[in-house]
Design a protein around this nucleic acid. Structure first.
Length: 268
DNA sequence: ATGGTAGTCGAACTA
């Protein structure tokens, strides 16, 4: 079984690319972020024609998350316990969607950006991650053998080697100590980064800004992650970042990230 | 040099 995550930066602008990528890669579960679509705008039928069940959580103009699965899509949930809201009045931001796919609870997550270090959005980001850590710790406390995947765009580069040049990020979000601490707290709660061991730094980025020729200059960031609960991490047999998908006209600014699992019941 | 590109909708905002 293979699970993938991809910030597509508009599922409608990327429709042909996503369909072609699914045909080419044949993944079982694909989590999407930044779909930038209301539910009625989401191209559900075209994914169903490829054999995937579809869940989408849309609404706002900029965010939106989805799950495509051909190994079942059960107990769909929007948001997690204690997830903070943003805005006054609160805006339905559509940042977290989960379902049980082939025995694994997969969360498609779009962590708040934070914007700048002095913006209230940064505290919202930290609160959001703290709530996710608390919720995740609760799931593992209730069932230490739970197979849970926290996948998506975390908008954090956990290590200096996860950006092309730390000097370019002085005073910026994504690399600050509190953001890295919030990410580390999720890891400490029991969710391991299962992609990094197969894609060691330097240079294995998942995102390259559209401006400044960042991609051809290989100036990117590693901010998209698959974090796995202990029982799921034991099943991981490989992982990759599909850098090829970032190439050419009409690419998202993020590359898909793919994790390969052992068949259930054959772990050990 | 306060830039650059891409997406939403159709001005301004988000990333």
């Amino acid at each position: 079984m293979r699970i993938a995550t991809w910030n597509v930066n508009s599922v409608r602008a990327r429709h042909d690319r996503v369909l072609a990528w699914l045909r080419r890669t044949d993944v079982d579960v694909l989590a999407l972020q930044e779909t930038k679509a209301r539910d009625a705008q989401f191209p559900t039928a075209s994914f169903e024609e490829l054999g995937y069940q579809v869940a989408h959580l849309g609404h706002s103009q900029w965010n939106g998350v989805a799950l495509l699965s051909r190994v079942g899509l059960d107990d769909v949930r929007a948001g997690f316990e204690g997830m903070p809201t943003w805005g006054d009045p609160p805006v339905a931001e559509a940042r977290a969607l989960s379902a049980v796919c082939g025995g694994v609870r997969v969360w498609s997550l779009y962590v708040p950006n934070g914007r700048t270090l002095d913006d209230p959005h940064l505290q919202y980001k930290l609160d959001w991650l703290a709530a996710l850590r608390a919720a995740g710790a609760g799931w593992l406390a209730a069932d230490p053998d739970a197979q849970v995947a926290l996948v998506g765009d975390w908008n954090i580069a956990p290590r200096d080697e996860d950006v092309w040049d730390m000097r370019a990020f002085a005073g910026a979000t994504h690399v600050s100590e509190p953001e890295r601490a919030a990410f580390a707290a999720v890891v400490d709660a029991g969710f391991a980064d299962v992609v990094r061991p197969f894609t060691p730094a330097p240079g294995n980025f998942t995102y390259w800004d559209y401006t400044q020729l960042r991609f051809p200059r290989r100036e990117g960031m590693r901010i998209d992650f698959v974090l796995a609960s202990p029982a799921l991490a034991r099943r991981v047999r490989g992982a990759s970042i599909d850098r090829e998908e970032r190439k050419g006209k009409g690419a998202s600014d993020h590359a898909p990230v793919v994790v390969e699992l052992d068949d259930a019941g054959t772990t050990g």
